[in-house]
């Protein structure tokens, strides 16, 4: 009991220093995060809505994707079509969470990182771009884009 409390306190203090900023810890193995960030499995339909939303997912500002009702799509980044064929779920997860771990020069925003950023606007300070649940939804959606 006491040991349990101690562990809880320890976790809380770690969380307080490193991850109180809206992101929970995760483990990177190779170029992937194999463990889901959230308890609930991702929902592809919700993920699609997040990707399509210009002020939530922001994805279509830079990427195009098989979402025909969104007419104005970007071409700064590869098409999302086929993303689920090119990458595993675990690889997709890391690329959304913090692509800079794979390529420090990437222009892909770190969707699940709050550290190492400069001059973040007050309303977004300490917050990740997407929540753990939202990232799982997006990963679940992208995984369906096999071609």
């Amino acid at each position: 009991m006491r040991a349990g409390l101690l562990v809880a306190a320890l976790i809380a203090s770690i969380a307080g220093t490193a991850w109180a900023q809206g992101a929970s810890p995760y483990t990177v193995v190779g170029d992937a995060i194999s463990q889901p960030l959230a308890d609930k499995p991702g929902d592809p339909a919700r993920g699609r809505a997040i990707v399509a939303n210009r002020s939530v997912g922001l994805c279509l500002l830079c990427h195009s994707g098989p979402i025909p009702e969104e007419r104005f799509q970007g071409n700064l980044a590869p098409s999302l079509a086929g993303a689920g064929g090119r990458w595993s779920v675990a690889q997709l997860r890391l690329r959304i969470v913090d692509g800079a771990r794979l390529n420090p020069d990437t222009i892909m925003p770190p969707y699940y990182r709050t550290t190492g950023l400069q001059r973040v606007a007050k309303p977004f300070e300490g917050k990740t771009i997407l929540t753990a649940e939202q990232i799982e939804d997006v990963v679940a959606y992208l995984a369906t884009l096999k071609e």
Binding site: F72, Q73, G74, L76, P109, P110, F124, K127, I129
Partner: peptide, 27 residues
């Protein structure tokens, strides 16, 4: 310098990607 939650610099868009489309708009 990269700035903001999206971690972008002026140069990323206006030097490296000028002429491409951000959503429907030419950068």
């Amino acid at each position: 310098r990269r700035q903001g939650q999206l971690n972008l610099s002026c140069a990323i868009c206006h030097d490296d990607n000028a002429g491409k489309k951000l959503a429907g708009v030419t950068i």
